[in-house]
Nucleic acid binder design. Structure first.
Lengths: 298, 298
DNA sequence: AGTCAAATTTGTCTAGGACATAATCATGAG
DNA sequence: CTCATGATTATGTCCTAGACAAATTTGACT
């Protein structure tokens, strides 16, 4: 957790929690929380303990709770909510918990080796759908409950990245079809989803061009043109505000030539209520394979 | 460039340019630029052309110019400034320009192959210092002059990442010394510098733990403890505000045990005026090898 | 030319109000 | 009882105009 006696100004809190300055101020006005002390210039200084609470609140909002219900709750109350949250827990296979144990023990090297073993035992499609995907969810839930720290989650991401990149490097198809451009919109900085999509698509014989994260919309359009892409594939996590996802997809769809398909996947789009016209939403990785087959047929 | 007739609200402009909302408003008040139109609610709507100018202005500020000199300049004036900027151009080897041509031609696959050839011809240390480093600078300058677009720069980063990660995977030393923890502070999202450092350190026999980008300070401390790190190595690019670098290094140095060394490198730290106590600044990658030797001796 | 203080520049913070849109609630129809 | 439709509440983002500390530049004086 944060240093106990430290105080943070509003800019630092915004960066650390991902909650905007305006939002922090308006919560204070409306809900009476957070309740920062003030320095000699009447500027807000947030105690570390409140920053910790804000982090937990952010997690609850990301999984769909509403501010009026969670902003201002005490640490124990927040933890109670977080612990009862994952009711939809499917039966995780015991093997997955071994990976989690490796994460908690900070055995990065051993984790990578174990993941690689699973990859070559199961094959890439099963590895992604039966190991990585549920493991991501399991890790996400454990992180939600505070059982896994941020740095442990970073370590985990790094090992997955390492394993997937090695796999992709060896199955890349520079002459495949369709041509797919992979990236995320500004604001979405997670690349794991992209890597999983690239692996799946490459295996389906598609030709992938990875642009990395946070490509401005205008640049995506240019890149699609330059690479004569048939498909632009975007990935969204829960950390991306639903409104930004919606308007971003709208703008991009409008700016992109009609013959270029726009695919969106990840936990962030599962949240979207009404689908956008001309945007294909993919719930699971397996949908990708299916969508490629459909595209080839039709 | 941005869609010609499009209008963007202040939040989008902040995300696209990296200039904060407060700063955009105060520039308008002080310098009369940007001069957005207003919608029916008196909310700012920035024309695409002004967003383009703001992007160029941001680049000039990142290389050390002052707002009073550049905010409000017209597109031709900005381009004139950008073109005269890189006076310190060293004599680039002709081979480097071939890489640049591949980038401009969007030949991602060919670029990766060419880079790999150079890697195995030169060896890793020379590849990093004589190819990648100057190429980064060359690409950075070309980008500054608008000769390389954002998406092309993304494509370039992706290929470098791919080549370096493959190299690192094959020289990783899980039992080496010293133990180094690699990451960036919140706000710094570029990981190329980290990868180059990891490659150099691994080759020196160090044991690297890569945490990826944007690890909160408190988490870095915990990770250093968990991995019994001897060194925490941070990377900073020009896109990181100097003030954030300074205060971040101060905070981290204070929170880290004294016996853990703190190393900082990248173009962002070259800008820092006064070095922080207890922080080692590394100007070039070769300094890393040297610093490791020194550490082993002393 | 170097050093120190004064002046200027610059980013970030403040308050309190406003509004569009999303989410929830309530009502009525089938 | 279920579904749709309209009213109400909740919520994030934007607004103005002022303030101040820290960084940088300027200017005076060795």
């Amino acid at each position: 957790m944060s240093q106990e006696n430290s105080l943070f100004n509003i800019g630092v809190v915004e960066r650390e929690t991902g909650i905007g300055k305006d939002t922090l101020r308006v919560w204070e006005r409306r809900y009476g929380f957070p309740a920062p002390v003030r320095d000699q210039n009447e500027e807000r200084l947030y105690p570390g303990e409140q920053v910790d609470r804000l982090r937990l609140i952010k997690r609850l909002l990301d999984i769909g709770m509403r501010p009026v219900k969670v902003v201002g709750l005490s640490l124990p109350e927040l933890n109670a909510l977080l612990n009862e949250a994952p009711k939809n827990a499917p039966g995780y296979s015991p093997e997955l918990f071994e990976f989690v144990e490796l994460i908690k023990a900070h055995q990065g090297g051993a984790l990578r080796i174990a993941l690689n073993l699973a990859l070559f035992r199961q094959g890439l499609p099963d590895f992604l759908s039966k190991t990585i995907s549920p493991l991501n969810q399991l890790v996400g839930e454990a992180w939600l409950r505070g059982e896994i720290r941020v740095f442990e989650e970073h370590l985990y991401s790094e090992q997955i990245t390492s394993v997937l990149r090695a796999a992709i490097a060896s199955i890349r198809n520079p002459a495949g079809t369709p041509r797919v451009l992979l990236t995320t919109l500004p604001g979405e900085e997670h690349s794991l989803g992209l890597l999983m999509a690239e692996a799946t698509l490459s295996l389906s014989g598609a030709q992938c061009t990875m642009l990395g994260v946070q490509t401005p919309i205008g640049e995506i359009v240019l890149a699609a043109q330059a690479h004569q892409a048939d498909i632009v594939a975007l990935s969204f996590t829960l950390s991306m505000p639903p409104l930004q996802i919606k308007s971003g997809l709208q703008q991009l769809r409008q700016a992109l030539p009609r013959h270029v398909a726009l695919w969106a996947g990840g936990s962030g789009v599962a949240r979207q209520r009404k689908p956008e016209d001309g945007v294909q939403y993919l719930g699971a990785l397996s949908d990708l394979t299916e969508a490629v087959s459909l595209l080839r047929q039709g």
